[in-house]
Design a protein around this nucleic acid. Structure first.
Length: 110
RNA sequence: CGAGCGGACUACGCGGCCGCGGCGUGCGAAAGCACGGUGAGGAAAGUCCGGGCAUCGCAGGGCAGGACGCCUGAUAACGUCAGGUGAAGGCGACUUCAAGGAAAGUGCAACAGAAAUAGACAACCGCCCCGUCCUUAUGGGCAGGUGCGGAUAAGGUGGAAAGGCGAGGCAAGAGCUCACCGACGGGACGGUAACGCCCCGUGCCAUGUAAACCCCGUCCGAUGCAAGUUUGGGAUCUCUCCACAUAGGGUUGCCCGCCCGGGGAGAUCCGCGAAUAACGCUCGAGCCUAUCGGUGACGGUAGGCCUAGAUAAAUGGCCGCGCCAGACAGAACCCGGCUUACAGGUCCGUCUCGGAUC
RNA sequence: GGCCUUGUGGUCAAGCGGUUAAGACGGCGCCCUCUCACGGCGCAAUCCCGGGUUCGAUUCCCGGCAAGGUCA
């Protein structure tokens, strides 16, 4: 299951403007319904050097990938919150909570 | 055995499942799918130097500006490296050093101190003069002088005070004289050289600062892959700037020289991806092994290898084992260095010092 | 990725190698006043950090760190 990447500044700003924002402890999720699923992560300089930033991006992508087969198509923006340390488990749990809340995924039976 | 010194290397590993960026092959109209193989560092970092490469100048000169600075070598080049010299530090192995010139000139040296680059003052000594005391007198003592001469040793300071220390000498003193040390000049020898060492001579010939200006020597055109190349179209109209030349524009900060006849902005129509697409973009001063030359940096020869090329930007997640933890940190045109960050581990040495034993 | 700039009390800042490191706003304490304001006096600085040159460094040199600007 593949997903597209949100690349262009226009698209990202349009999602930021007209999308719906949801907050959890570790991150902010912005989404806007669409025909194809597309995702972008947003990690600024304040999160540290390139090693730190790359790590956060990878964790977010991996966590998002877990919910991909069950997802109704939409454009998604993931923005982490600054913390001492970052874990895959936390990101995955919070994304799951938010997506379930908005009924963007089918409730898993397991 | 303990404490060190110098050098080299490594940077979690293995297995399973899921996933990511290029590449190759196959299938497919395409999106894509399958398989194979590949995929971050010693610093990829800071951007501090040096190159390659590209564009501009048409590749000329001068000034200004900048960098470097013991010697010899290595190198494409360097502010780098190697070997040596000198100085400083350490018992030692060894380490550190922007290490030319202060008699080319200029500047600065607070406070303190009599005085800061050099004259004076106070103090010292002799002569002369005057006062006073002792003495018959000669002579002597004490205190002094707008006087003359000698002379810079001592003077609480200070980073620095006119070579140092000792002896002689003198009215008092002074390289005035002598020995030793230092400095300067000359010569012989060794070394490619920096320099070393020895001999002779000169009483000594001028504080520090050049990471102050500067002088001497060597080197430097500017801009940087967001460089730059290709596609990025065509037509019409309007406005505006400058000009027919001692002007204007371009050219490196300036001058000379050289080059140019137009430049800029907006609107409409066909067209439409314009922070875009492709190239640049990875085979290169490349890496590995052997061998030869060299003390070494490095170079020669032979054989083998192909080893990231992304562009909102690829290495991750989960599980198991090794003991549970595993540093600093992520390529963005490419190389050579320097500097800075860094958990742990491994290896080497006719290495050094101390202790014990034989 | 490249090229630049700047770091001085809480804030804005001056500072030609020798200063008690100016000044303004703000803060705190005291005086003045019945009280407040105004006014007066005083206090508060690791000169971003670490080395070096120098007798002496906020200033000069080297290396870090942080903040900011710029390119199409």
């Amino acid at each position: 299951m593949k997903y597209l990447r949100l690349k262009k500044a226009k698209e990202i700003t349009s999602v930021l403007k007209s999308g719906k924002r949801l907050h959890e402890k570790t991150l902010t999720l912005v989404y806007f319904p669409s025909e194809a699923t597309a995702m972008a992560v947003c990690v600024g300089k304040k999160f540290g050097g390139s090693v730190q930033r790359n790590r956060i991006k990878r964790l977010l992508r991996e966590a998002f990938r877990g919910y991909l087969p069950l997802l109704t198509p939409c454009k998604v923006l993931l923005i982490p919150k600054k913390k001492e340390a970052y874990f895959y488990g936390e990101f995955s749990r919070d994304i799951g909570k938010l997506l379930e809340k908005e009924r963007l995924i089918e409730r898993r039976t397991g």
